[in-house]
């Protein structure tokens, strides 16, 4: 069993999410950085989509009441077991009584802690993912706090695994997102279109699993206060009339009424989960023919014949 000693800034249970309900207003949710999440599960010997803990910004303290293996991936948070440093992106054996502490995040935003067997969490609408705005999924529909007790499922698992050199994603405080255009792109003035690709933005404190409000050069989307509400996706960049763009994340609204100007390509969506308040965010243009190739090579790197690491890994 795992006992939560300190929930930290915000730690939730996530899995691969609950797709297919956006038409009734329920977003996919799931791990905000699915790549680090999948790697944590892989190292712990689990299926890539087993429920795990997602810790945003840090501060999570856990005590283990039995010996098992855990794995850490994602943002760098100076993890320690009983006060001794342990390595990020690695599987770690823990003994009964051991205490894991994560300090404040240095690079990226979210760390993932997978446990051998995966966490035992009841599913709501087909997923164990926590969706905080509607208080469902995960651990009682809320973030973890001191006193919560989690247990591992007895699903089949493999032995712990080690990530080969070169397969660890690199995270920094500067996130570069490759994009294609979204439906209202053409409403932007030419200078605003240019600004989006040349000037970096800063993620404001209004950054969570729903979205990230960015600050930067004003983007002029024309007079669009009364645009008809339309569908949105994780990775959509919206521009409200104040000219400060909003990037939609895993728990983000399913529809919105501000012009949608850019869409982050699927292969880069995992990076959205590593945007912390204060991160620098830049957008780049991805050519149409490149997007499928980038995704295919990323997926085959981790799951195909070449890498063959994560079975069934695709998102």
């Amino acid at each position: 069993m795992i006992e939560v000693l300190n929930g930290g800034t915000r730690a939730t249970i996530q899995d691969a999410g609950r797709p297919g309900y956006r038409h009734v207003g329920i977003p996919q949710s799931g791990a905000a950085d699915k790549l680090s999440f999948a790697l944590a599960n892989w190292m712990a010997g689990n299926r890539w989509d087993a429920p795990a803990i997602e810790c945003a910004l840090g501060g999570l303290h856990l005590r283990f009441t039995e010996s098992t293996t855990i794995a850490l991936a994602g943002a760098e948070m100076w993890a320690q077991i009983n006060g001794q440093n342990v390595k990020n992106f690695s599987a770690i054996p823990v003994a009964s009584g051991d205490i894991l502490t994560l300090s404040f995040v240095r690079d990226g935003c979210r760390a993932y802690i997978a446990i051998s067997g995966g966490l035992k969490i009841p599913e709501f609408m087909g997923s164990a993912s926590t969706y905080l705005p509607a208080e469902f999924g995960g651990y009682e529909g809320r973030a973890l706090r001191a006193g919560d007790k989690l247990s591992a499922s007895n699903r089949p698992r493999e032995a712990p695994r080690k990530i080969p050199t070169g397969y660890t994603p690199r995270l920094s405080r500067h996130i570069v997102l490759r994009t294609r255009t979204a439906p209202e792109w053409k409403q932007l003035s030419k200078p605003s279109q240019r600004h989006l690709f040349v000037s970096p933005f800063i993620a404001t404190p209004a950054t969570d699993r729903m979205g990230s409000r960015l600050r930067g050069d004003r983007i002029d989307s024309g007079n669009t206060l009364s645009m008809t509400s339309s569908p949105l996706l994780p990775g959509t960049l919206q521009v409200p009339p104040d000219g400060q763009p909003i990037l939609i994340l895993a728990d983000g609204h399913c529809t919105g009424g501000y012009p949608r100007v850019l869409q982050v390509i699927r292969a880069d969506l995992w990076l959205l989960g590593q945007i912390a308040p204060g991160s620098q965010v830049s957008f780049r243009r991805c050519f149409k023919d490149d997007a499928p190739e980038i995704l295919a090579s990323r997926n085959s790197f981790y799951s195909g014949d070449y890498g063959g690491m994560i079975e069934g890994f695709a998102f």
């Binding site: 797709p19 297919g20 956006r22 038409h23 439906p183 008809t228 509400s229 339309s230 569908p231 996706l233 399913c254 529809t255 699927r266 149409k288 997007a291 499928p292 995704l295 295919a296 997926n299 695709a314």
Partner: peptide
């Protein structure tokens, strides 16, 4: 993967790894 109807548009999401635009 998602079919999202709205006032004047339908958003249809697919998996780029299995089907092209």
């Amino acid at each position: 993967q998602e079919i999202v109807p709205s006032y004047k548009s339908i958003l249809c999401v697919f998996d780029l790894a299995t089907i092209s635009m």
